[in-house]
């Protein structure tokens, strides 16, 4: 049942190259995924601002357009306003827990250092071990880094809270039962006469194509994230062959091979979307001209646009909260490891101190 404990051990040069490679890879993937998501958000934003597709579905002028009803169902299914309210309520506690672990850890170092300094003041040259302050520099630097990370997290929490405050009213409306939601949307003239007209058909087809592009991107995101490759083999080979690792060159070549094609597809998707959105703008202009707008239909349109945006905001806030919760939980694990490092070194220093004291007393 022998298992090689040192199976994963590699030369230092390979270890360092792998760290940099992994950073490059995750930067690349994050940028690619970020680009795709930004494009989808842009698309959703443009459509919402044009009241699409709701305007095309709004036959009677007083019932809820299908796409809005679907958006409402979708966020109710995801837990509605309550689920994001709960996550927001939990954030401060998560922050506090992390702060406490960090504060405890640094306090341990401070206390041991104080004792060490007191003993050095008392015994002078006879207390000849390295001062704790010097030994603790790297740990304190790590601690300072954690503090700045927590400060950034606090700012992120604030952004989420503000987003929530801005949109919660409309989100709440979208979560209401159908009859209440319908009553809250002003009535207007029906646009029945426009159904079947060419511009409506064109808009429908353009919007369908945009939906397809968005779906493709979801698939693409999954594929990009699923790419695996063991770069350590390449680095080991290079080291054995050349005696050194040209990390930058090897990494960029490999990353291009792994992700180059995906990058092309993403760029193509952006170009197609831009074209389609342009077409939508043109068609929508025509559509607006045909529609007979008055104060009521404008009011109705405004509310429908706000409801569509509320859905997008809900999705964004949910994602932010999921990210924030995961961030704090991941950070707790990391801080607990840091706390262990601090308590281990303090324990070792205490043991050493006790031995030194014994020696001094005996001498």
């Amino acid at each position: 049942k022998f298992s090689d404990l040192f199976e994963k051990m590699v030369p230092m040069a390979v270890q360092q190259a792998m760290t940099i490679y992994n950073q490059r890879k995750s930067d690349f993937v994050n940028r690619l995924v970020g680009t795709m998501r930004e494009a989808t958000n842009l698309c959703n934003g443009v459509l919402a601002s044009l009241n699409l597709p709701a305007a095309l579905e709004d036959l009677s002028g007083d019932s809820i357009p299908q796409s809005i009803a679907e958006k409402a169902r979708s966020i109710v299914q995801q837990g509605g306003l309550q689920s994001i309210e709960q996550l927001i309520k939990d954030l401060p506690e998560l922050l506090t827990r992390n702060r406490e672990i960090l504060d405890e850890s640094l306090k341990m170092l401070d206390e041991e250092e104080t004792t060490d300094n007191d003993l050095r003041a008392k015994f002078n040259q006879r207390w000849n071990r390295t001062p704790s302050g010097d030994l603790y520099k790297p740990l304190r630097a790590e601690g300072a880094n954690f503090r700045s990370i927590l400060d950034k997290a606090v700012q992120a929490d604030q952004v989420v809270k503000e987003r929530y405050n801005t949109h919660c009213e409309m989100i709440a409306l979208l979560c209401k039962p159908e009859n209440e939601l319908s009553a809250a949307i002003p009535s207007a003239n029906p646009t029945k006469t426009l159904q079947g007209s060419e511009v409506v058909n064109m808009l429908r087809s353009q919007i369908t194509k945009l939906d397809e592009i968005k779906k493709e991107r979801e698939t693409l995101e999954g594929e990009v994230k699923a790419v695996t490759f063991d770069m350590s083999v390449s680095f080991l080979t290079a080291l054995a062959r050349d005696g050194a690792i040209n990390e930058e060159q090897l990494s960029s070549t490999q990353l291009e091979q792994l992700y180059g094609a995906y990058n092309q597809r993403v760029q193509a998707s952006l170009r197609t979307q831009e074209e389609l959105l342009g077409q939508v703008q043109t068609s929508h202009q025509e559509f607006s001209n045909l529609k007979q707008s008055n104060a009521e239909s404008n009011q109705r349109e405004e509310v429908l646009k706000k409801l569509a945006s509320a859905h997008d905001s809900y999705v964004e806030i949910s994602n932010n909260l999921r990210e924030g919760t995961k961030f704090y939980n991941d950070l707790t694990e990391i801080l607990l490891k840091f706390q262990n490092k601090c308590s281990d070194i303090v324990f070792a220093r205490k043991t050493e101190r006790d031995e030194l004291l014994k020696e001094l007393q005996q001498s």
Binding site: I149, A153, I334
Partner: peptide, 16 residues
């Protein structure tokens, strides 16, 4: 992404 990345910190640094 809104929150800072913890990627660097997840890697166990070599203790010298």
């Amino acid at each position: 992404s809104l929150y800072p990345s913890l990627e660097d910190l997840k890697v166990d640094k070599v203790i010298r």
